[in-house]
Simulated assay, not measured.
Amino acid sequence: MRLRLRLFEFEDLPWFPSVIRAGMMDYLRFMISTLGTYRPIAPLLAEGLARTGHSRVLELGAGAGGGTETVLTALRAHGQPAATILLTDLYPQPAAWADIAERTRGAIGFAPAAVNALAVPPELTGFRAIFSAFHHFPPAAAEALLRDAVRAGTGIGVFEGAGKHWVELLLAWTVLPVAQLLLTPFYRPFRLSRLVFTYLIPLIPLCTIWDGSVSLLRMYSTAELLGLARAADPEGRFVWQSGKKRHWWGPEVTYLVGWPATTEK
């Protein structure tokens, strides 16, 4: 799919009710974690940590932290036994994050205050990563996000849990909404509001269908990702690579990774 449209997503709107946003994020966290969406990119992330000398992944735009535990486990299996992850977002989700932090005994922590991915506070260090959220940024903002990582001299990985194919859009309209209706009662932590706005007033599934469809249409291709990286790093301070990694059962992850050129062997 080469089409790329700049449509809006409900979760990006400042006035969008937080209870609906949280319900949508809970669904994404459950699905990404259950399916192990980002397991295929663990070697890339592990290499980024090794090349930059970091042991912590600084996750930007973390949402509800979906898949983070899977990523941590995979990282530790790929030569990073001391790896930790710090979750950050412009719209923090401390309730969801606290649950993850407890389960991982603090290996996955979080910053409770809002963090702008375009201007990350210098005290928040680590190899930067953004999962399933880079498409939210229009080109100028996406370039600024990458430029901020270059300016800070830290590595960065951009990962989207799709290959941008029409079949993925079809799944977003058919199979995934049914899965959401069937699985919602099993999300943890339990929230009564999630049931109300899924079954009685189905705002969560309807907004999820819209946002999921728009996410695919807004995704950058691998060539566009490299173009943004080169525009953000005109002096070539970083080494960049972009591509797709396929999960063993079929789905793809689109990625862009970059780290300081001085780390190249």
Rank of each mutant, 00 (worst) to 15 (best):
T184Y: 04
I108G: 08
E59K: 04
A95K: 06
E123M: 04
R39I: 13
I108N: 05
A232F: 00
G61P: 08
I32A: 08
G243L: 05
R51H: 03
L28H: 02
S242E: 03
L86M: 15
L226V: 02
Y199A: 05
A107P: 03
P17E: 12
V175T: 06
S18G: 14
T254S: 10
H165Y: 05
F197M: 00
R191C: 15
D211L: 13
A149W: 00
T70Q: 09
V71G: 03
G23R: 00
R105Q: 12
V71Y: 00
E160W: 04
E252K: 11
P189M: 14
A98K: 11
E123C: 07
P177M: 13
G23L: 07
R76D: 05
G250T: 14
P14G: 13
A117C: 12
W97Q: 07
E252H: 12
P251Y: 06
P185D: 09
V57S: 06
Y255N: 04
Y199Q: 01
T73D: 12
A82S: 15
L228S: 10
G212D: 04
R237P: 10
P112M: 08
E11M: 12
F238S: 02
N116P: 03
W166P: 15
G66I: 06
R103N: 09
L72A: 07
G106V: 14
T154A: 14
W15G: 07
A98G: 14
E11W: 04
A62E: 05
L44T: 08
A119M: 06
R147A: 15
T125R: 14
T184G: 07
M1W: 07
L87P: 01
